[in-house]
């Protein structure tokens, strides 16, 4: 039904020694492991979308996964336009989703 991280106990590559971290997304705490990207942390919890587009207000999340499309940008610790697929999550990161309205709508 959703995206998820393969549980380490079932992973044939035998992952071990993962360190738990926690970040918040729009105030909601989310658990992850050290070394995941911010997109990885959010997707592993089954959440597919986080940004909202400017013109149509449509949901967006990961698309290219390799830093090319910028669909996944978020604000991290106050810094805007950070590609969630490129930035590793750090314990305590405060992530805010972005919805940048067009100037006409802002007026």
């Amino acid at each position: 039904m959703a995206a998820r991280m393969m549980p380490s106990r079932h992973d044939p590559i035998r992952r071990r020694d993962e360190t738990a971290i926690g970040i918040s997304v729009d105030g909601e705490p989310i658990a992850g492991v050290e070394g995941q990207s911010i997109a990885g942390v959010v997707l592993a919890r089954g959440r597919l979308a986080w940004r909202t587009t400017s013109a149509e207000g449509r949901p967006r999340g990961l698309f290219c996964g390799i830093g090319v499309c910028f669909d996944c940008i978020v604000t991290v610790n106050g810094e805007r336009d950070v590609r969630a697929c490129q930035r590793r999550a750090s314990d305590g990161d405060v992530v805010e989703t972005q919805h940048d309205e067009l100037p006409e709508a802002a007026r």
Binding site: Q36, G40, L43, A49, F63, C64, I66, C85
Partner: peptide, 20 residues
């Protein structure tokens, strides 16, 4: 959301162990 490039699936499988 839920439409990805094939490269995203590959990157997240190999680099994150996340199934999309």
């Amino acid at each position: 959301p839920g439409v990805f490039t094939a490269g995203a699936a590959q990157a997240f499988a190999k680099g994150e162990r996340v199934a999309l």
